[in-house]
Amino acid sequence: MSEFIHKSHNVTILLYHLVFPAKYRRAVFDDTVDKEIKNICLDIESRYQIKFLEIGTDKDQVHFLVQSVPTYSVTKLVTMIKSLTAREVFSRCPSVKKQLWGGELCTDGYLASTVGKHGDEQMIANYVKNQGNEYKKLHNVHQLEMF
């Protein structure tokens, strides 16, 4: 799953569990949108120092288990992920934009929690899995590559 990230002056293992509810709590995450979110997140990984360890949806919300570097604050991570995924989902799946009346993909609110290296990572993964009735795992990484 996660590994220590070695930079020139620090070694870190920062893991975050992020949850973004869909705007108006609409059930907009279907198989097509799920596939696009996964692809978008993997594209984000290639451009930024973010690793998506797990991505999952539950019809009206999306869960991320993310590893990043200390130069990215939680607010910056949330803003980056929300804005890039929303822009790309709206362009790749126009029906979602129509369902949300041309507005935003996710609400302004979000849940962000940190995950510890020893023991808590699996607990959060299980928590994400047990949210709602129809949770579907879209992506999972068991070994992290170096940035």
Rank of each mutant, 00 (worst) to 15 (best):
I124F: 00
H142K: 12
T114E: 09
R25H: 08
K59P: 06
T114P: 07
V19T: 12
E3H: 08
M123R: 13
F64V: 07
H142T: 15
V78I: 10
H17Y: 12
C106T: 10
I124K: 02
S68M: 05
I37A: 01
Q99L: 11
S68W: 00
K38W: 00
Y110K: 06
L144E: 15
K129L: 13
Q99M: 13
S68P: 03
F52G: 00
K97M: 09
V66M: 08
V74G: 06
L77Q: 05
L100N: 09
G103S: 09
S46D: 14
L53V: 06
M123V: 14
T57G: 01
H6D: 15
C41K: 02
S68I: 00
Q122P: 04
K97D: 07
F20P: 02
Q99W: 12
Q61M: 12
L14S: 08
F147Q: 12
E134M: 04
N39W: 05
T57L: 00
G109Q: 15
Y135W: 01
S2V: 04
E88I: 00
L42T: 14
Y127F: 01
V11A: 02
L15S: 03
G132Q: 05
T71E: 13
K59D: 15
Y135Q: 11
A112W: 05
L65D: 05
L111R: 05
Y127M: 08
A86P: 04
H142D: 13
W101K: 07
E121G: 02
F4E: 15
L15N: 07
T114R: 03
D43C: 06
V28Y: 00
D43T: 11
V19D: 10
D58G: 01
F4S: 13
D108Q: 14
